Simulated assay, not measured.
Amino acid sequence: MDVAFESRFAKDLKHIQDASLRRRVKQLINETQNASSKHEIPNLTKLKGFPATIESESATIG
């Protein structure tokens, strides 16, 4: 899948002190990028209150 991140997100990842948490976040990013559809991403839910955009849908994992 095409995945886009805000530049601030990358900066925030660098500030995570817990190595285990940082490793889990990176693993989740890799799983998301390797998924061929949104149905392959575990625990993906549509955000409420945000309309779907033309190119993608707003969603959160967790």
Rank of each mutant, 00 (worst) to 15 (best):
G49M: 04
G49P: 01
E57S: 07
E57D: 11
L28S: 09
T45A: 07
I61P: 00
I16M: 07
R8E: 15
G62D: 15
I16P: 01
P51G: 01
N43H: 12
K26N: 15
N30W: 08
D2R: 13
T60S: 11
H15Y: 12
R23W: 08
V25Q: 05
K14F: 08
K11A: 14
N43E: 12
L28G: 08
A52F: 07
Q33P: 00
S37Y: 03
R8M: 12
D18Y: 06
A4D: 11
A10Q: 10
Q33N: 08
I29A: 05
N34D: 13
A4V: 10
A52T: 11
S7C: 03
L13P: 02
L44R: 02
E6S: 15
K38V: 05
R8P: 00
S36H: 14
S37G: 06
L21P: 00
N30I: 08
V25S: 05
A19M: 10
D18M: 04
A52N: 11
F50D: 04
K48P: 02
F5T: 04
T53Q: 13
L28Y: 04
A10D: 11
L44Y: 01
N43G: 01
N30M: 11
S36D: 10
Q27V: 05
M1N: 10
Q27G: 08
F5E: 05
H39D: 15
P42Y: 01
R24K: 15
I54V: 10
P42K: 09
R23F: 12
D2L: 13
H39M: 12
E40D: 14
A10H: 03
I54T: 10
M1C: 09
D12P: 01
A35D: 01
T32P: 00
S20V: 13
N43T: 05
L47H: 01
Q33G: 02
V3C: 09
A35Y: 02
L47G: 03
I29T: 06
K14M: 11
I29L: 15
I29N: 02
F9K: 03
K11P: 00
E57H: 04
L13A: 03
A35R: 02
I16H: 04
I54E: 13
A59G: 06
I29F: 09
T60F: 12
L21S: 09
F50R: 06
K48C: 03
I54N: 11
I41L: 04
I29R: 04
I16V: 14
A35W: 02
L21N: 08
L44G: 01
T45S: 06
A4S: 13
I41P: 01
T45R: 06
L13R: 04
K26W: 11
D18T: 03
S56Y: 07
H15G: 01
L47Y: 00
L44K: 01
E6Y: 13
N30Q: 13
A35K: 01
N34E: 14
E6H: 13
K48F: 06
F5K: 07
E57R: 05
T32M: 12
F50E: 07
P42I: 04
G49Q: 03
V3Y: 07
L47S: 06
A10G: 00
S56W: 02
P51C: 03
K46T: 09
K38Y: 12
E40I: 04
K38W: 12
F9L: 06
E57N: 08
Q17P: 01
F5N: 06
Q27P: 00
S36E: 15
G62H: 08
V3L: 15
S37H: 09
D12A: 13
Q27H: 15
R24T: 14
F9M: 05
